[in-house]
Design a protein around this nucleic acid. Structure first.
Lengths: 135, 135
DNA sequence: GTCAGTGCAAACCCTTTGCAGAAAG
DNA sequence: CTTTCTGCAAAGGGTTTGCACTGAC
């Protein structure tokens, strides 16, 4: 379990002012490697006694993602997942249940990246394996 | 250029009743290998003289995707792209411009798929290489 | 004290839905 | 004729915004 102090240091290191709400949200997210939607974060935060508004959750998640503390995972047009594991890895996405499961980076080998389109630089590689419930 | 007749045959082969609007939409989509959002399809259809409502565009795109005539590409939480190339291939996504570019299937080698989570079967593998404008 | 951060509610945007009229077979 | 499809407009759901209040330093 991370302490509040550790979280505060981590936010400062990322250039983020460690406010009450941001630390509350970070404690939830960084407790373990996991994937959460904004809605889940909001529910857990407020169930845990923290008082955080919807707008602040969205602002904070966006800020954390921008600063590299979280990775956005876009697998469902309906919502964005935020992944507290920012290391290289991939995902299974169960289209029936909405469950998102990590795949170790070495379980899928992506070889020989093609050249980037002219005038662009790589920003990230997402490998998503969609699965559905077996019949 | 595909003829209306060819489109009609293709829709029938997929088990889709070839109505006026569906054929109009299919003509736009299948003219070439491309990626379009629902909004783009709607604009082009109506600019081209066809009379198609928003609801019908969404219904039709969803139906075509379900029947395997289109592939949904989810790279942006704000909208779904529909890819008229249903063959295996991957994508570059320019996060700054929104441009989606095909990557030939053999340009990226995905080896050794890990085992599916229990009780599930693979539904598809998406490889998305996010790029941004070079500074 | 100053400026950034927060909360609330309303606004937004893409997408879906309900239902009456129109078209396909 | 019967069933499916279409169009319109209104509803829906996640996300963003405007603005006054609060908190960080």
């Amino acid at each position: 379990m991370l302490s509040r102090t550790q979280i505060i240091d981590r936010l400062k290191a990322a250039g983020i002012t460690p406010t009450q709400q941001r630390v509350d949200i970070a404690l939830i997210l960084f407790a373990k490697s996991q994937h959460m939607s904004a809605e889940q974060v909001l529910n857990i935060a407020n169930a845990g006694g923290a008082l955080v508004s919807k707008a602040t959750v969205y602002n904070t998640l966006g800020l954390f993602a921008e600063k590299g503390l979280l990775r956005e995972v876009i697998v469902d047009p309906a919502k964005v997942f935020y992944d507290s594991n920012t290391g290289e890895h991939h995902h299974f996405y169960n289209v029936d249940t909405g469950a998102l499961i990590d795949i170790a980076p070495d379980a899928v080998r992506v070889d020989s990246l093609p050249p980037m389109p002219e005038g662009t630089v790589a920003d990230g590689v997402d490998v998503i394996i969609r699965v559905r419930q077996a019949d």
